[in-house]
């Protein structure tokens, strides 16, 4: 198994990851399971299908919302935030 070799932030907190991982996988590995709050009922959601189909793992990445954490490769220095409704 490879070692952590990059870092990014989730809601300001530093998270370590292995390059090649998806944002969603790296966050799950760091015990971050709630990735967004829904638009109408503010319910927590996380990775569901894991392969880019369900759009439930939406996060805000470097200011851009509606990004699927499960299929977006994590990059060193990325700023990831919980998506609340449609915003960070």
């Amino acid at each position: 198994m490879s070692q952590f070799d990059i870092q990014f932030t989730f809601n300001g907190e530093t998270i370590s990851a292995i390059s090649g991982q998806s944002v969603g996988a790296a966050l799950l590995a760091a015990k971050q399971r709630t990735l967004r709050k829904t638009r109408f009922n503010q319910k927590g959601r996380g990775v569901f299908c894991g392969i880019g189909v369900c759009f439930d793992c939406l996060v805000v990445i470097d200011g851009a919302s509606n990004q699927r954490a499960c299929i977006t490769e994590v990059i060193s220095g990325m700023k990831v935030q919980t998506q609340v409704g449609t915003n960070a």
Binding site: R39, S65, N66, G85, T86, N87
Partner: peptide, 8 residues
């Protein structure tokens, strides 16, 4: 008509 994803 175009419909976008839910947006801010």
């Amino acid at each position: 008509i175009l419909v976008t994803a839910p947006a801010p």
